[in-house]
Design a binder for these strands. Structure first.
Lengths: 340, 340
DNA sequence: TGCCACGAGGTTAGCGATAACCTTAAAGCT
DNA sequence: AGCTTTAAGGTTATCGCTAACCTCGTGGCA
């Protein structure tokens, strides 16, 4: 069996081979304390020959200083979240930290389970997705945590020690302005699972109230129990066009749903943007566009991860950090809305 | 400071509160041993009131049974790999395992560092991306590992305890057949970093030799030092068309590069598939297609992760597993090649 | 009655490291 | 000469938990 392959080499064995104490080996390998160059050589040589690999579990337990960072995101395979993860890793890995990844699927009870599991490893920090309803269980766990916790994707609320993300309200307003400037008046919102994704919900509400200020009623097609995927965007767009053929602008919850919607409109022979303008959210679909470049709001995803990780490092060193970092977002003009 | 928030509750404190020994608490919480129902209640009550959270580091160290699984993939934000990760998580999480994620960026020396860092946590298993050149350092670490190791994305070679992935040679042949069946004769391959991505290299070689069997010389445009991204696909396609305007079929390393290439062809006014047929690899671009549905080879990414995780579980339980699992792949006809 | 099995829980000894202090000899200082 | 420093390394006591064995009382059974 693979797990019997070889008994692991411990500090004690390296110490015996080098003719010193365990403590000396520990000091040499961590590069602390006062050890002569000659002894260092001997120790390193012995460690190398034995193929010694430190046991981080023991080290962490003993020193009570962890280099594990726990990250919980709704979905790993959604590029929106995985790019944030890349940013986090880019900062933490070179500093010797390991990331634990959890996938909550926007489910508060899975999130709570994950928080519990991750805290049981006594991580140096916790990165959570902000845009979710948190269960009471999760809140209780968070209250008892003894590490910094950071909220990702959200800087409108400041529930934890630090937040990094865009203002979702700004995002909703940006789309409203863009549509209104182009003379659109019959505007619809297409989304899903707004009961779970509270960030999306705030974008939706901001759009709605911005339009209301211009005396326009937002028409919405929101389906709580379908995934926030292209297939749902397509389905809901079809519903929308059946019920409200007069629509002239649609804002989708995200780019993925927007692409689903666009594929329906294209198939139905409805010209975009001549008849209907379309905007998404996230800037994920621009890079790979062949013909249809979606107008969308670009969010600096990797940078959000980087800023969150940097704040975490600062907190673990006891340095002060601000309450939040607001990601600047930008409406990127594609060819699914009219140019200015 | 956040890290001082509250001293953590230990088994001993729960034991004191419940009026039993630490061992009894440990047994109750792990649901092992013979403890009366009445005592169990008392212990659980005490644990709950104190907000006890087990320390998994200590538990793992003591029992020498780990529930950490280490996964190293080239890129987290590439959906191709992150969907595999989702599959892995879907199997492992419900069984109480945590995944450590590392990002190698196709760099053998980063990979070796990651393997070292992950093995230092004494994981229950190691999942590696198969299609990479492995450094001598990494090989040495793997030889001394004491956990099962599994290779992802690759089932042509069987270097570790188990492999899960498609046959990349089959993939290359599938494209060759598809192109030849459609009467294409001036065929090009566009790729990048084939020195790093050995799986892609095998697809390329299989395509080349299949065409050679039909007395056709594959024209290739491969750039070792640019990323395997859309922008590179676009750039290389432009080069290709300048040097070989007679081309009538292009196979791209992956879907992302193919979409970059398509966007160039579209902008240059070259009709696809009338003048040039295009095929990609991975099936990632079909779901979100608005107008251009790329002909590609679909790979069951999530399933690869699931099979790998299942094999790992089986190995940790000492059960036998086969050498590999071959993912079935399929050429999916889009509108960038002619129908059969 | 005597013996064994079993239920219910406790004791001891680590797991593999590190923190915090301690020792010792040689060198430096007055 | 006598005392303090310092370099170089060692000792001891945990970290928080679990494996493996031990104890003790009760009840069953021949």
């Amino acid at each position: 069996m693979a797990s019997e392959r070889s008994k692991t080499v411990t500090l004690a064995e390296v110490a015996a081979k080098a003719g010193v104490s365990k403590m000396t080996v520990s000091k040499v390998l961590r590069e602390v304390g006062n050890i002569s160059e000659e002894t260092r050589q001997r120790v390193r040589q012995a460690a190398h020959e034995l193929g010694y690999l430190p046991n981080s579990l023991a080290g962490t337990l003993s020193s009570r200083r962890s280099r594990i960072v726990a990250v919980i995101i709704p979905s790993i395979s959604d590029i929106v979240y995985s790019e944030v993860l890349s940013g986090v890793n880019a900062i933490l890995r070179p500093r010797g930290f390991q990331t634990f990844i959890g996938e909550s699927q926007f489910d508060p009870s899975i999130e709570a389970d994950l928080i519990r599991a991750m805290l049981s490893f006594r991580p140096a920090g916790l990165l959570l997705n902000g845009g979710m309803a948190r269960s009471a269980d999760a809140e209780a766990l968070l209250a008892r945590r003894n590490c910094p916790a950071i909220q990702l994707w959200d800087c409108d609320r400041h529930a934890l020690d630090f937040s990094a993300g865009p203002s979702h309200e700004d995002a909703g307003r940006l789309v409203a302005t863009h549509f209104l400037d182009r003379g659109l008046r019959r505007i619809a919102y297409v989304g899903a699972e707004l009961d779970k994704d509270l960030n999306a919900r705030r974008r939706y509400l901001a759009l709605k109230s911005s339009l209301a200020a211009a005396h326009i009623d937002l028409i919405n097609v929101i389906c709580e129990d379908r995934p926030r995927q292209a297939v749902t965007g397509r389905f809901l767009t079809e519903q929308l066009m059946r019920m409200h053929p007069e629509i002239d602008g649609i804002h989708f919850l995200n780019d993925t749903m927007a692409l689903g919607g666009l594929s329906y409109l294209h198939q139905a022979g409805i010209p975009v943007p001549e008849r209907i303008s379309v905007a998404g959210f996230n800037g994920t679909s621009l890079a790979n566009a062949v013909r249809t470049r979606l107008t969308t709001i670009d969010v600096p995803r990797t940078e959000i991860g980087e800023k969150a990780a940097q704040a975490l490092l600062r907190m673990t060193e006891g340095e002060p950090v601000p309450d939040f970092w607001q990601a600047r977002i930008e409406l990127v003009q594609g060819n699914t809305t009219h140019p200015a």
